[in-house]
Design a protein around this nucleic acid. Structure first.
Length: 914
RNA sequence: GCCGCGGUGGUGGAAUCGGUAGACACGAAGGACUUAAAAUCCUUUGGCCAGUGAUGGCUGUGCGGGUUCAAGUCCCGCCCGCGGUACCA
């Protein structure tokens, strides 16, 4: 009986669909369990073999949980708005909706073939009006809310207005426009003039997490700073809660640490410095209040509002020139160029402790967006200040005993203070504390916590995104009533921005009751911030998610996805969820209880080596094993070859010649050094060995492996098993098809056991093998160690030999069902069952079968194992020792020595120390 | 620079609580079946040394120390690779 995987897989995929096997109900007596994959952006290239890694893992877990008796929600959908589809539209004129839907269709086909247990009735697409209605709705909630810092939660803005109406006499005197302007400072979704990351190539602004080292993460285009009027989300208001919440979720430490760094809590003090000859002081933020005695200059960010106040007439021209220069540098240039720059303002500040006069400078090493945009510079103990002081020849006053600041600053927060008035002799941490108390008591400043986390810029000057449900009256934004949602994305003639206006300016009649609508659309993270809630109740047109339904599923129990979303999506959706929690729309304030990052699957490229030495014809290729030989060394050129025409690093000659016209007449020097491939009388096949390298999986490297091809050749079950077999889920690893045969062979071997099934009683050994397997696989799945389960199955099948007993085979079908659902279903039915294996109860391990009468004790001498001794498991420590010492082999290895000590660990090991 | 993760045979990897390092698989070598090939099955396979041989010995988890009866695993100091982040005061 052949293992006809494609027949089996197609049959069961059709059956499951017909029977609605994977449909999930919101009404169940079972305990709920929610397993979620990060939904994909449907790119034009389709899925490659790296994408399903996390999906397979979550699918295994979902199926396992279902067999354990849970009601498992395991949905899939598409993050369908985004830049690539729109860039493609600009180039080709094809509507992004058309290409997006086409890509989604392809993705669904590919996903279906792998046999996932998704409930497709719950599929969501962020670009679907029925979906983005709720994205817009959430935005309106944010627009109509403010963050109450006393309560530490979002409240309806109407409460704030009511408060002002009752307590603030000026409120009523304001015009409507003035009132709106004031409210804008409080709304959670607000419009403001902000310094934004502008990407000219993409024609849009980007959020901080979409920029890396001055380049856009998507596409790698330069990004520059610009002040623009943009929508932002007040994520920073949630900084403290986003930080605190990390202690209550089960994520990896590294991911939590990345988020903590991104949020960047820093405890310090704000201090006032008077300006000589002026009434108004200015405020700086520092974490080293203890170093005030060493301040030798002050620095303002170029964009600081203090700049214009302190610049003197004599210095004005020089300052303006410097500001102008800063403005024209892109973020990237600033990062690349670490040379010290700056300019003196002409003014002096007064040190509040020493009353000394200190010059005020402007430099772009101080950031406007952090703290107060102004610092006190302590060159002796801050490396940036040190570099600046050296460059401008400013004094450096060491404050810590023994610190040598002749070559570099001493940044560490340790040591004894000196040159510091009343702080002298204190240890640094104590000095920081003492200074904080001092400035609080004297009113010079106050203790302050700062966060690095900024508000998220929420406008995009692009077409393919959610329209804002906002119109403008008198220059002020107003919300479209909720019952008018969704505000559908209009058709445009041109997807490109024209005359500096976003593409929506090209839409006909883009107005609401005669008022112009917002022209920007929302960013990619808008649609992905609450999609997990929508899966709970995807067809509800009254609410994002029904309260009872939300109360049933509560939160995502297991979330699997890539680590690249650590600072974007995973911050935004936590923020979004907390906001909805504040307003009482959801019942949990953290959306993802447990989170696992699957590793990346890298590509494994193959090369052929074209001979370019003397007499080269350009179509001779040297086998990889020969290229180091003298006649070929340094005379070959590696050329990427499509990995799909290479098997176990051996090139398919015919396929290679047909691959591209330039290889049509390719000649080879084979592994054995000969060059004839068409002589059937020569012994053995001629093999051309390819070289290999681990690189990113990409079209240009010809190393993309498509799951469809793997499925066609080996079947989905082999693909699923092999992806897990490759290594630990969380580790990055190259896709290397060498080895997939082993997994496929195992499935065949397993399959053959089910040819004729007997009702014979299993033996003790068979039961032991089975229950060992149950124990191992259960432990593995609970601990997400899927890679170790596959060998466990292999070992069990090897141990069982030709066993065909129903009692054993039935259970194995259940055990392997999460991993290889198609073959499991077929085997389950062969055992005589009529219902799906998905609902077959997960077996319990019976420890009684595992108990072995004897224990094989390794006997060590001075820690080296010399032999093993089989002794009864129940034997006491003393008896084990007696038996070991009485053994003739022990006498041999003791060689007349008297043991100093004998260590017996019952059930484990014996070590004799001589 | 800082933070995180990792380094085990020719390869992917296993060793879950400090207790027989290299499970399982790939590849390779040899063999069986076959006219031949594919498929399948069997044997060997970390390195070095000794022995005709069953076998025995030494060595071995990036490097150097340490703790321990016992270290891939724990501690200290380095080296290398990968990922993230970077004037955050």
């Amino acid at each position: 009986m052949d293992y006809n995987f494609s027949e089996i897989e197609q049959k069961w995929q059709a059956e499951w669909e017909k029977n609605g096997t994977y449909r999930v109900s919101n009404k169940s007596d079972k305990q709920p369990f929610y397993v979620l994959d990060m939904f994909p952006y449907p790119s034009g290239a389709g899925l490659h073999v790296g994408h399903p890694l996390g999906y397979i893992a979550s699918d295994i877990y979902s199926r396992y949980k279902r067999q354990k008796g849970f009601n498992v929600l395991h949905p899939m959908g598409f993050d369908a708005y985004g830049l690539p589809a729109e860039q493609y539209a600009i180039q080709t004129g094809q509507h992004p909706e058309v290409t997006t839907n086409k890509n989604i269709k392809r993705y669904i086909e590919q996903l279906r073939k792998i046999g996932f247990c998704y409930d497709w009735d719950r599929e969501v697409r962020t670009c679907d009006p029925n979906f983005y209605k709720w994205t817009q709705w959430a935005f309106l909630q944010m627009f109509n809310s403010y963050y109450d810092s006393a309560l530490q939660k979002a409240r309806p803005i109407s409460e704030l207005i009511a408060k002002w109406e009752a307590n603030d006499p000026t409120w009523k005197t304001l015009s409507e426009k003035e009132q709106q302007e004031r409210l804008m400072n409080y709304r959670i979704a607000y419009l403001s003039d902000t310094k934004v990351n502008w990407c000219p190539a993409l024609g849009t602004v980007l959020a901080n997490d979409e920029v890396s080292e001055g380049l856009s993460v998507r596409g790698g285009y330069p990004v520059e700073q610009r002040v623009m009027r943009q929508w932002s989300l007040r994520v920073s208001a949630y900084a403290a809660r986003l930080l605190e919440g990390l202690d209550r979720v089960d994520w990896t430490e590294s991911l939590k640490e990345t988020q903590r760094n991104w949020i960047g809590r820093s405890e310090g003090a704000e201090m006032q410095f008077a300006v000589k000859g002026q009434d108004e002081p200015f405020t700086i933020f520092t974490t080293r209040a203890d170093t005030v005695f060493g301040v030798t200059f002050m620095v303002l960010a170029p964009e600081s509002e203090y700049v214009q106040r302190v610049v003197t007439d004599e210095q004005r021209a020089e300052v303006e020139a410097y500001l102008d220069r800063c403005k024209h540098r892109t973020e990237r240039e600033r990062i690349a160029d670490r040379r010290v720059t700056g300019v003196f303002t002409g003014s002096y500040a007064i040190n509040p402790l020493t009353n000394g006069e200190i010059p005020i400078y402007i430099s772009d090493y101080v950031l406007a967006g952090y703290g107060t945009g102004a610092i006190m510079a302590v060159p002796a103990h801050d490396s940036r200040d040190y570099a600046f002081a050296k460059h401008f020849n400013l004094p450096i006053i060491p404050l810590i005993e023994g610190a040598d600041v002749s070559e570099a600053s001493f940044d560490a927060k340790e040591g004894k203070m000196m040159n510091s008035g009343f702080l002298n002799g204190m240890e640094v941490p104590d000095a920081i504390q003492a200074m904080k108390e001092y400035i609080t008591n004297t009113g010079i400043g106050r203790v302050k916590v700062n966060y690095r986390l900024r508000d998220a810029i929420f406008s995009r000057q692009r077409y393919w995104g959610e329209p804002f449900p906002i119109y403008y009256k008198d220059g002020m934004p107003y919300a479209i009533p909720e019952d008018k949602l969704p505000l559908e994305l209009p058709e445009v003639k041109e997807f490109k921005s024209t005359n500096g206006q976003p593409p929506l300016a090209n839409a006909k009649d883009w107005t609401y009751e005669g008022h112009p609508l917002e022209l920007c659309t929302m960013p990619g993270f808008a649609g992905s911030s609450a999609y997990y809630l929508r899966y709970m109740d995807p067809h509800n047109d009254k609410a994002l998610v029904d309260k009872d339904v939300n109360a049933y599923w509560r939160q995502v129990n297991l979330y699997i996805g890539g680590t690249e979303h650590a600072t974007g999506h995973l911050i935004y959706s936590r923020f979004w969820n907390k906001f909805l929690f504040d307003l009482g729309y959801v019942c949990e304030d953290e959306p993802f209880k447990k989170l696992i990052n699957q590793g990346m699957i890298q590509g494994r490229s193959n090369f052929v080596y074209r001979y370019i030495g003397e007499g080269a014809t350009g179509n001779l290729y040297i086998s990889y094993n020969l290229i180091e030989q003298p006649e070929y060394k340094d005379k070959v050129q590696p050329i990427h070859v499509d990995v799909n025409i290479v098997h176990n690093d051996v090139l398919d000659i015919t396929a290679f010649r047909n691959w591209m016209p330039e290889f049509r007449n390719a000649e080879f020097v084979f592994a054995d050094g000969t060059s004839y491939d068409d002589n059937p009388y020569l012994a053995g096949p001629k093999q051309y060995i390819c070289g290999c390298a681990i690189e990113k999986m990409s079209k240009s490297m010809f190393n993309v492996v498509n799951p469809d091809d793997v499925i066609a050749q080996y079947g989905a079950d082999t693909l699923r098993l092999y992806e897990m077999f490759l290594g630990p889920l969380e580790m990055s690893k190259p896709w290397d098809t060498n080895g997939i045969d082993g997994v496929h062979r195992f499935l065949k071997k397993l399959w053959n056991l089910y040819e004729t099934i007997s009702n014979e009683e299993p033996t003790k050994d068979e039961l032991r093998s089975l229950h060992k397997l149950i124990k191992k696989v259960t432990w593995d799945i609970e601990n997400f160690s899927f890679n170790t389960s596959i060998p466990a199955f292999m070992i069990a099948v090897n141990e069982l030999g030709k066993c065909n007993k129903r009692a054993i085979l039935e259970t194995i079908a259940i055990l392997i069902a999460p991993f290889a659902p198609h073959i499991a279903e077929e085997m389950w039915h062969r055992c005589g069952h009529g219902t799906t294996v998905c609902d077959a109860e997960w077996p319990e391990c019976n420890e009684a079968y595992l108990v072995e009468d004897n224990q094989n004790y390794p006997i060590q001498f001075n820690g080296k194992v010399r032999f093993t001794l089989s002794l009864p498991k129940t034997m006491s420590k003393e008896d084990v020792e007696k038996n070991v010492m009485a053994d003739e082999q022990t006498t041999k290895y003791l060689a007349g020595n008297t043991p100093k000590k004998v260590i017996v660990v019952p059930g484990r090991i014996v070590n004799i120390v001589m």
